[in-house]
């Protein structure tokens, strides 16, 4: 027979064990949202202002990973308990993620009400998830080298720029990949005309290639290149006291979209909170703050930017119409062949 004291002791022991075994019980009030986000100025604003305000409003904590690349980490985590609830990447990586079932196919206004106010490109058939900002990929150039402002993508092939033009290591950089597709459009039948693109790429040699946009900014600032493929925010940020002899040109054939895309992982345990976060990031006040901090064009049509930002960023339907969105699903399906071909073309 079990004595009363023994029964009480056993019960208390079991309760203690259950508490230790399930720490979530102790923190049931505080949910944690796991997200990915960028570093640099973007990361500073997120950490200082955007995320603390979100945590306060939604009574949660946000765990933000800035250590790129994110997708390999998501790949090795459990689909039922993913390492991230919200994946923030550029568009092409979202397409890789959706093929592996790591993110949702589509997010609608039903889950994220502010989607009702975004420009069509933000949720077009070229996007999985939802675009919260975009940059325009065009041509950055030195203004102190006697160059006329480029008006066409073909201007990058000017023989005067031999050895002083910049591009990207195509296998590792989405700007380089988008530029390759643009070469197909400018010199061939369209974005998917790879033969024309390869031929045009060959004609761009000698070209200095880098693997990330920050390095292209450095090359432009140090005059190591006089003209290079870059996104508008990578040039516009050098303004005011930080002014540099560089400018951005939008070629007449159109600018390529470099979208900042948010998506939710299907196995997230805090899906509602994840949708709330995306909705929050699309709020006009949050969009304005981030857009003006890093010179990104907001996806929400209702955002009103200060005049100097409004003049340069894609803030009207007419300006947004100049955006060309690459078909990343098409590109990723051919990626291995493209990588091998461009590596051979550019080597030597």
């Amino acid at each position: 027979m079990i004595s009363r004291r023994k029964a009480l002791r056993t019960g208390a022991g079991l309760a203690a064990l259950a508490t230790v075994g399930a720490p979530s019980i102790l923190h049931a009030q505080t949910k944690t949202l796991k997200i990915t986000t960028w570093g640099g100025k973007w990361g500073e604003v997120m950490k200082a202002t955007v995320l603390p305000a979100f945590e306060k409003e939604f009574k949660c904590t946000v765990s933000a990973d800035q250590a790129f690349p994110f997708l390999p980490k998501l790949q090795v985590s459990s689909k039922n308990d993913p390492i991230y609830d919200v994946l923030h990447t550029n568009s092409n990586e979202q397409w890789n993620a959706v093929v592996e079932g790591l993110v949702m196919n589509k997010i609608t206004a039903k889950e994220v009400p502010n989607i009702a106010d975004v420009y069509p490109y933000a949720v077009s058939d070229k996007i999985v998830g939802v675009t919260i900002f975009t940059s325009a990929i065009g041509l950055g150039f030195r203004t102190d080298k006697g160059l006329t402002k480029p008006t066409s993508w073909k201007d990058l092939a000017d023989p005067k720029l031999a050895g002083a033009r910049g591009g990207y290591l195509i296998p590792v950089n989405s700007l380089g990949q988008a530029h390759l597709m643009m070469l197909g459009k400018v010199y061939g039948k369209g974005l998917t005309d790879l033969d024309a693109a390869y031929k045009a790429l060959e004609a761009l040699k000698p070209i200095k290639l880098v693997d990330f946009t920050g390095q292209m900014e450095k090359m432009l600032l140090s005059a190591e290149v006089s003209m290079g493929v870059i996104h508008d925010s990578g040039v516009y940020r050098y303004e005011g006291a930080n002014m540099q002899p560089v400018d951005f040109a939008s070629p007449s054939e159109g600018v390529l979209a470099l979208e900042q895309v948010l998506n939710v992982t299907p196995g997230s345990k805090v899906k509602e909170l994840a949708f709330a976060y995306i909705d929050y990031m699309l709020r006009p006040d949050v969009q304005k703050m981030l857009a003006e901090a890093v010179w990104y064009s907001p996806a929400n049509q209702k955002v009103k930017l200060e005049a100097k930002y409004d003049a340069k960023l894609l803030t009207t339907p007419e300006k947004v119409a100049t955006l060309i969105q690459p078909d990343w699903k098409w590109y990723n399906a051919r990626r291995e062949d493209i990588d091998a071909r461009v590596t051979k073309i550019l080597k030597g």
């Binding site: 690349p69 890789n96 296998p171 590792v172 290639l209 390095q215 291995e336 990588d339 080597k347 030597g348």
Partner: peptide, 26 residues
């Protein structure tokens, strides 16, 4: 090699990083 090599240098560690980080083929 990534920073100094430009278009001329392609090594196996660069290919490995490429396969993990951008081709997502571990």
């Amino acid at each position: 090699p990534s920073l100094m090599g430009g278009t001329d240098v392609l090594t196996l560690p660069m290919l490995i990083a490429q396969q993990v980080g951008t081709s997502f083929n571990p």
